[in-house]
Design a protein around this nucleic acid. Structure first.
Length: 272
DNA sequence: CAGAATACCTGCGGGC
DNA sequence: TGCCCGCAGGTATTCT
């Protein structure tokens, strides 16, 4: 999926077209996403005004009077705005049609995404209630992260990809942030110094902010919701560059696996 | 409980 | 060209 910057970019792309609009129809062509799409979501949304669209972690929340639709893009999901009907393709699993003729279309080849309905407050939903702080908010501070890190023995990269610790950091930005902070991805969390934590938190915020500014990373199948690719890909320092020279020191970048995820780092710039 | 492995899917590129 | 393998940005669930 799209990591946090891509979801944020999607939010910004779709929100102006659909917020405050009334849902005319929900068309579901394939109910089999990560969890089955609940059948009642069609009736729940019908003729309802979309009050607000927001993001929590990588979840998009469409708030209505009687509940909230939760959308997750999984690994390959995409949302687009259509200004007129276009015949659906193979992986276009559902559409939300609004009274202003705008169509929100969800596409997801791997079907790891989700489209759920909750009548409770969304932040109490089982998928959302254990999430850690948003990385770009002040609650994600270096003192917070250091305190959490003291209790954990996992590799640093695993720690920052754990959504109960901090949300929104996937494999790409974990690699990039660790490089920027000059920290070895395999450093144990509880061995982190306060100063190192400070550098890491700074790097995470910087990398994510910059990616959002540039419209998210484009890899394989991610396109922004308006159909144009993002521009962060050419900013990547380590991700996808295993075996190539470090842009900082020219040592060859090394690839290892940490927590079954490919990890790229510079053995010279990123010391334990 | 923490940490590690597994599972859900399709598509793509590389090797043969 | 076609088949088989491994890998891909996520994360809940199951295991040890």
């Amino acid at each position: 999926m799209p990591e946090l910057p891509e979801v944020e970019t999607t939010l910004q792309g779709i929100q102006p077209h659909i917020q405050h609009q009334i849902v005319q129809q929900v068309v579901i062509r394939h109910f089999g996403l990560r969890w089955p799409i609940p059948k009642n979501i069609i009736q729940q949304l019908q003729n309802q005004r979309l009050l607000k669209v927001e993001r929590r972690a990588k979840y998009l929340l469409l708030q209505f009077k009687h509940g909230t639709a939760i959308i997750h893009l999984g690994m390959s999901g995409r949302l687009r705005i259509l200004k007129q009907p276009i015949s659906p393709q193979k992986h276009d699993h559902f559409d939300i049609l609004f009274a202003n003729k705008i169509i929100l279309r969800f596409t997801d080849p791997r079907r790891f995404g989700a489209f759920l309905w909750t009548e409770a407050k969304p932040h109490l939903h089982p998928l959302l209630c254990h999430l850690g702080p948003e990385p770009l908010q002040k609650t994600f501070s270096y003192s917070y992260l250091w305190q959490v890190a003291q209790e954990r023995k996992v590799p640093l990269k695993t720690l920052i990809m754990d959504p109960t610790v901090v949300v929104g950091i996937g494999n790409i930005y974990a690699n990039e942030a660790l490089f920027m902070a000059g920290l070895h991805p395999n450093l144990r969390a509880n061995q982190l110094s306060l100063k190192q934590t400070q550098a890491l938190v700074k790097a995470i915020k910087y990398v994510l902010r910059r990616a959002i500014q540039l419209g998210g990373t484009t890899l394989q199948d991610f396109l922004k919701s308006d159909g144009k690719p993002g521009y962060f890909a050419n900013q990547l320092q380590v991700y996808g560059r295993a075996g190539l020279p470090c842009l900082q020191c020219h040592a060859l970048l090394v690839s290892v696996r940490i927590g079954q995820r490919s990890t790229v780092f510079c053995p010279r710039c990123q010391k334990k």
